[in-house]
């Protein structure tokens, strides 16, 4: 904000609101992390207290990492998330380019059809998806998860990206055509770099639900070799006893990769979210 337009009370108000929101958003994460470093009694007796020398305990992490398979779960989650994001971005951007760039019969209808997934949750089709996966022998493979997550992420990706691609200047694309660039070169070399902020936005919005999903891993790929972190953590939650140390440690660990991916995208993301608003 420029100095001329900033008044102290307004700035203070804005910051108070933002700080309040930050506290609300960060508090559960903070609670999870501090409690993951405490022993079981301390977790229940003083959940709000920071770990002290007497309550500090790494037993949760020892359990989780000693479990052996946890590295595999992590790997599975990462593979599924990264490959799905890549596919969503690639196909989403291609569909968005076609919808925004070419005039063809049924263009609007096709756009609406592709956006339908935003309104209808993919979980409604779980039974049919499971039947399909059984029929194609994809149950208990990461491929099954990747396919489902790609389908799940595409509607929003197409919707957001096609809006952004409409803003790329026609003259630029036409200049590329006159210079002899193929439609693919125009897409990859002229348009994609210009919508990079939007791509980062889509990547983040796609990533979080995939990483956190419990439903599809449980139904489509519950085998030991294909478990994701979220599903893997469930072994510590029993019907009668729950190993809270281990659950909290597993959750804290699960935040890490998301955080890394998020930081990778965030510089672009912030530009992406605000680029429409402040021009």
């Amino acid at each position: 904000m420029s100095k001329a337009r900033a008044s102290l009370s307004r700035t203070a108000l804005v910051h108070a609101a933002l700080i309040a929101y930050t506290l609300v958003a960060v508090f559960p994460v903070f609670l999870t992390i501090i409690n993951s470093f405490k022993n079981r009694n301390a977790i229940f007796r003083n959940p709000m207290q920071l770990p002290t020398p007497s309550t500090f305990d790494l037993v949760g992490y020892q359990t989780v990492l000693g479990q052996g398979d946890f590295a595999v779960y992590f790997q599975n989650s990462l593979i599924v998330t990264v490959v799905s994001i890549a596919l969503v971005l690639l196909f989403g951007a291609m569909a968005a380019f076609a919808l925004s760039e070419y005039r063809f019969r049924g263009n609007t209808l096709m756009g609406l059809y592709l956006a339908l997934g935003i309104m209808i949750p993919i979980r409604l089709g779980t039974v049919a998806i499971l039947q399909g996966m059984v029929a194609t022998g994809l149950v208990n493979t990461l491929t099954a998860l990747i396919l489902v997550y790609t389908a799940q992420g595409l509607p929003l990706a197409v919707f957001i990206l096609s809006e952004f691609m409409r803003t790329v200047s026609d003259d630029l694309k036409n200049a590329g055509r006159i210079d002899g660039l193929s439609e693919y070169a125009i897409f990859f070399r002229l348009v994609l770099p210009l919508v990079r902020p939007a791509m980062a936005t889509v990547a983040v919005f796609t990533m979080i639900p995939i990483w956190n999903d419990l439903w599809f891993p449980l139904i489509l790929a519950p085998s030991e070799a294909t478990k994701t972190v979220t599903l893997g953590s469930q072994i510590f939650i029993g019907q009668f006893v729950t190993n809270w140390n281990a659950v909290l440690a597993a959750l804290s660990l699960a935040i890490l990769p998301v955080l890394v991916l998020y930081l990778a995208f965030s510089r672009q993301l912030i530009r992406g979210i605000t680029s429409g608003a402040v021009k």
Binding site: N174, A175, I178, L190
Partner: peptide
């Protein structure tokens, strides 16, 4: 367009950024 032996200058310049 690339094979027509033409070149075009656009109002918005349309340079590759």
């Amino acid at each position: 367009p690339a094979k027509r032996g033409i070149a075009m200058v656009f109002q918005s310049y349309a340079l590759y950024p």
